[in-house]
Amino acid sequence: MTHAAEGDEMNYNIKRLSILMGLNILASVVFAFFGENSYFISFMNSLFLIGLLYIVIGAFLFVVQGGFFNGIIFSMKNFLKLDRLGAYVAQFDDTDLKKTGYPSQKSYSLTLPFFAAGILCCLVSLIGVL
Rank of each mutant, 00 (worst) to 15 (best):
F79P: 05
V30M: 11
G128V: 10
K106L: 10
Y102Q: 10
T2C: 02
P103T: 14
F31D: 00
A32Q: 02
E36C: 00
K15V: 13
E9Y: 13
F69V: 15
S75F: 14
I25K: 07
S28E: 02
F68D: 03
R16A: 13
I119W: 04
L61D: 10
A116K: 09
C121V: 13
F34L: 13
N70D: 11
F43E: 03
I14A: 10
L53E: 03
V64G: 04
F31T: 01
S125C: 11
I50A: 01
F60S: 08
L23C: 06
L52Q: 04
A5N: 10
I55F: 05
G51E: 05
I25C: 04
V63T: 06
V89M: 01
G101R: 02
Q105R: 15
I73M: 12
L112C: 00
A90N: 07
C121Q: 14
I73K: 09
E36D: 06
A117D: 03
D96I: 02
F62G: 09
L52E: 01
A59M: 15
A27E: 01
Y102N: 13
F34C: 04
Y39E: 00
F74Q: 14
S18V: 13
M76Y: 13
V89A: 08
F33G: 03
F40T: 06
M76T: 09
C121H: 12
S38H: 07
G51T: 12
N70Q: 11
L17F: 15
Y39W: 07
R16L: 15
L130F: 09
I14D: 02
F40E: 02
S109M: 08
K99T: 14
F34V: 13
H3F: 14
Y12T: 08
N24A: 10
F60D: 06
L82D: 11
F114V: 09
F115L: 14
V29G: 00
I127V: 14
A87S: 13
A32P: 03
R84E: 09
F114Y: 13
L97T: 05
S42H: 02
K81M: 15
A87V: 15
Y102H: 14
A116I: 14
D94W: 00
G67H: 08
L130D: 03
F68K: 08
A4T: 10
Y54L: 10
L49P: 00
L97A: 12
L61W: 09
C121L: 15
Q65R: 07
